Amino acid sequence: MPKFGITLPKMDDVFKSHPKPDVTKDLMAKYRLRAIDILQNIMPAKIIDIENLINQEKDSSSPFYTGQVFEAAYSAPKLIQPALIVDENENKGSGESSLTDKPIMPADITTCSTTGEEKPQDVRIGQHWFEVVKVNKNQMKCNEIVFKELEELHMLAQDLKVWLEMEIPVVEDGNSFGADVQAHLISQLTEAYKKSNTMQNGVRAHHGDRLKLATDWAKYPNFEDYAAAIANSDRFDHFLIRSFLRSILQLYAGLLTKFEKNWTKVINPKGTHETGGMY
């Protein structure tokens, strides 16, 4: 820190002489255009898209179909042991056999027959960790779609917040209702992307929940409750992902409605005739 004695730097002219006077104006122009596009085009289109996804609950070909939870992927998960697969066509004549890209039974869990000969296709008795529980492919499709929607919701809310923060007028006593409306909408945008983060964590938990149940099932394969636990977990996740679609719809519709109904106060918070050129 420089030492100035009793003389301190003056702050009066900070915003009169800074070297890049147009940086905030350029940013404002960019995000005003972005806000116009979001409010006029993107959000209404998103509402239609989310409604279409919700309507797919009645379509048997859709991953969001409510009847999916009665399919085998949700009702009958299985714990299987990978097998040693020999491809007899490959390396033909070389005297060697090759393995396919399917799961392989590692050599250290093979057993020996009564004659002492190793049989790689056999299964070791006791606890081991080489079983396979297949992923729920339908749920992964649902997760992929909703995760993408949540990411986009988060970014759209952030972009609107960047713009609206710059629209807040000079803080002064009196006539602050419009600024209060802006502050309220900023808090709503903040709440929207926080909720999107929470829902993303809910989507991510699908694999973590299955991982815990499947590893315990492999450790204690005689407990049939693990199959039911995974089935119930997957079924709940399918219900949860469809619930998230409704939450996303609610956030988009709520934000768009609040902006539309309070638009005058948003762009003209002091009630003057100068709107700042939003349109």
Rank of each mutant, 00 (worst) to 15 (best):
E152R: 11
N136G: 09
V86L: 15
T275G: 13
G95W: 12
L249R: 02
D26Q: 13
K20D: 15
V86E: 15
S98N: 11
E274Y: 15
E191W: 03
A72L: 13
Q200V: 08
H207I: 10
F223L: 12
R204Y: 11
L249Y: 04
T198F: 06
L8P: 03
V266H: 10
K219M: 01
E149F: 12
E151G: 03
A45H: 02
Y65E: 02
S97P: 00
F4L: 10
G126Q: 08
T198E: 12
Q121D: 15
N55Y: 05
Q127S: 12
F259Q: 06
N232L: 08
Y279G: 03
D180A: 06
E144I: 07
H154D: 12
G174C: 09
A73T: 13
R124G: 00
G276M: 02
G276V: 09
P169A: 08
T114D: 12
D49S: 13
S62C: 03
P44N: 04
N268F: 01
A73P: 01
V146F: 09
I248K: 06
E51A: 00
C142Y: 03
H128T: 09
K148W: 09
L84W: 02
N175E: 06
P82C: 06
S247C: 05
V69M: 13
A29N: 12
F130V: 07
G276T: 07
K219R: 15
N138W: 00
N41T: 15
D26C: 00
F239H: 12
P221W: 04
S60K: 15
G254V: 05
E167F: 02
G202D: 02
S176I: 03
L156G: 06
K265A: 14
I80M: 05
F244L: 05
M155T: 15
Y279C: 00
D12T: 13
N41H: 09
I42H: 07
P44G: 11
I248F: 08
M199N: 04
L256R: 12
K10R: 09
A183V: 14
M278C: 09
K212A: 14
M105E: 07
R32F: 03
G67W: 10
I6Y: 07
W163P: 01
P120M: 03
K30V: 14
E51T: 05
I38H: 05
S98E: 13
A72N: 00
S60F: 08
V266K: 10
P77N: 09
K161R: 15
W263Q: 05
G174D: 04
S113F: 02
D59M: 10
L249H: 08
P9K: 15
R204M: 07
P21D: 09
N201P: 02
E71Y: 01
A83L: 06
E96N: 12
